[in-house]
Amino acid sequence: MIQVDGLSKIYRVAEKQPGFAGTLRHFLRRRTRDVVAVQDVSFQIEPGEMVGFLGANGAGKTTTLKMLCGLIHPSSGRVQVGGFSPQRRQAEFLRRITLVMGQKQQLLWDLPPMDSLRVNAAVYGIPDGVARRRISELADLLELGEELTRPVRKLSLGQRMKAELLAALLHEPEVLFLDEPTLGLDVNAQARVRKFLAEYNRRTGATVLLTSHYMADITALCPRVLLIHQGRLFHDGPLEALAEQLAPEREVRLELESPVAPDALEGLGRLEQLEGCDVRLLVPRDQLTAVVAQLLDRFPVRDLDVTDPPIEELIGGLFRQGRV
């Protein structure tokens, strides 16, 4: 469905000193500098796949996503989406894709989502009857009801995001590009959006490419992930492989009934922090169950929590370890 070969994007950035004199000098003699946003990225995505797209801020995720939509023209390389070349932005191509951006909204602020949906139906040339049927189906899936007839400004962030998804999917696109679709949502709303995306993919067989800051989005939805760093692709494969590579250890936080001595925790992973009753341990993944069992067995545990470090930290840690 998506084929990317040797994709690169280089921006020419003007260099300007601050202040009025700098502006004047810039005007007289432009100095530019090339910034490589994406370099020689290649991958293929089959129809119906759900692929997670990971990378730190500024790694080139959004640039790649926009090149796949045709919003940015590549400096070199070849992109094909559904047999089309995105940068020509033919109407036929645009009808098959959709882009959802977590921080930006297409719904009209002062009107109920329904009005924006009717506009989209006309723009995509969807007959009214069909549009009505699709809206009610998608609204059921998204658990949206009378929210569709309330002005967007009066909706909560979660309701607004669901309405955005509805607006983006009204024309039944075959390819979904989702840029941080759960950004800023609370845990419940995130879970509902995730459930919806999985269900949508199952029902329609649409191809999904998704970026997210929340590891949970990726773990729940994407069996395969692409990891991009400083514009280069360096992991393409199952999530487990990446997770083990990125975070061979998990963090265990303990709250004990009474303080313990550091040597009492010997052999139970790497001790990160010990402050009175609060303990933080890093435990290799494969020993996790054993260690947790021992901990519960040996100590008076009041509370226990196992977490993955945030994705940014994981990726950062990976690069610090020099494994690139």
Binding site: G70, L71, A91, R95, I97, T98, L99, K104, V123, G125
Partner: peptide, 18 residues
């Protein structure tokens, strides 16, 4: 400014018309 021009450009309709 808000980056929503992207949404307009992705609609299968002439952007100047929109």
């Amino acid at each position: 400014r808000e980056g929503t021009l992207d949404f307009v450009l992705l609609k299968p309709i002439d952007s100047q018309f929109w």
